[in-house]
Design a protein around this nucleic acid. Structure first.
Lengths: 193, 193
DNA sequence: CCAATTTCTTGATTCAAATCATTGGGACCA
DNA sequence: TGGTCCCAATGATTTGAATCAAGAAATTGG
């Protein structure tokens, strides 16, 4: 039931069976139906989730009430409003299931406890955060320096599986475009080959 | 000479004098003249820097050769192309001094050595990366959801000291605008009060 | 299986920012 | 002192994406 989580940790630091058991003892499990929310703006994010199965989207709402998707998450990806989780402030992000989902959760107390008692867990988190930062920096760079066409091409290359599973207008939202513009970009790209 | 670095670490984990000495033994010092580069695209980023004094900008170059500033750094801020630093790949970022600078450097071997031998250093890094990730996420959210006017206002509120020290066209570049547009935004904001 | 809803595409129009172009103000220096 | 360079401000024009609008295709649910 917690294989995906453990295999993620084992990718970075190798755990003994005892350590695996210790971690599992701190985890809980949750299922979500399509369109259910894992987190809503204004609530406090009490858990970080890892996706065992399914797909979700994270989005924020701007002053005019428009939604902007900031992230997708598929199997093996982590989720949560870190700012809200660590500072116990109201979340600014919404996280919604796009398909029926199986999640593994870790609460703040469980997280802190593991950090205290298991150096490998802290190492895992340091590496995880470093990689997440690098990935986000890369995405920010692409947003800034690529044309919409190239952004879409990059997106398709990096996340071909998401393109299959997520409606086009959500990908448009993620890329900061209207659905119409993305549609035109696609036909433009199709032309030039 | 290394007070700024040590005080940054001490903010997150409190060090004994011995630990402070151990860290300092792994650091080096560097001065940079205005317009000198700390890092150039294509080079491998061998050091992470902390700014003791001065100001720098990080920028990337797009396919058409246009520069896009992705970050500024003032006293107490950290710098470097993390992707290049950890993977020993050519850097995609350029880091240039905007004023004469004093930097404290840590090399990859020194960093790894401290991670191995000093749990507090690992804890410091985990917290640092987590905060950096949260801050970058916030910036990305603002880029996506705020109007250019609000983005500029937010920038001025968060970094009033940068506005003083950095030419306007660089702030425009950071915000993803042309200098002309930023100039108009400023006069628009001045009108409405 | 069919009706309802959602999703995608395509066209016409509008609008905001980029681009192009000019001006004026300092700073620095011979 | 006059000249050059750099920077900011402003005006005129162009351009590319958003918006508005409509219809076709696909999915969903009863």
């Amino acid at each position: 039931m917690y294989e995906v989580f453990l295999s993620k940790v084992n990718e970075k630091v190798s755990l003994t069976p005892q350590e695996e058991a210790e971690i599992v003892a701190h985890l809980t499990h949750k299922t979500l139906r399509k369109r259910q929310f894992f987190l809503q703006e204004g609530d406090i994010c009490r858990y970080i989730a890892l996706v065992e199965k399914g797909a979700l989207r994270t989005y924020v709402t701007d002053l005019e009430g428009h939604e902007h998707i900031t992230a997708f998450a598929l199997e093996g990806w982590s989720l949560g409003d870190l700012c809200s989780f660590f500072k116990e402030e109201p979340a600014t992000q919404n996280i919604e299931a796009l398909e029926d989902c199986e999640l593994v959760l870790i609460s703040r107390p469980a997280h802190e406890s593991l950090l205290q008692t298991m150096p490998k867990y802290e190492t895992y988190n340091r590496i995880l955060m470093t990689e997440a930062y690098i990935a986000l920096q890369k995405r920010t760079r692409d947003m800034i320096s690529l044309s919409p066409d190239d952004q879409y091409k990059a997106f398709v290359n990096v996340y071909p599986n998401i393109v299959q599973r997520v409606p086009q207008h959500m990908i448009a939202s993620y890329l900061g475009l209207t659905p119409e513009t993305l549609s035109r970009i696609k036909s433009r790209i199709a032309q030039h080959r």
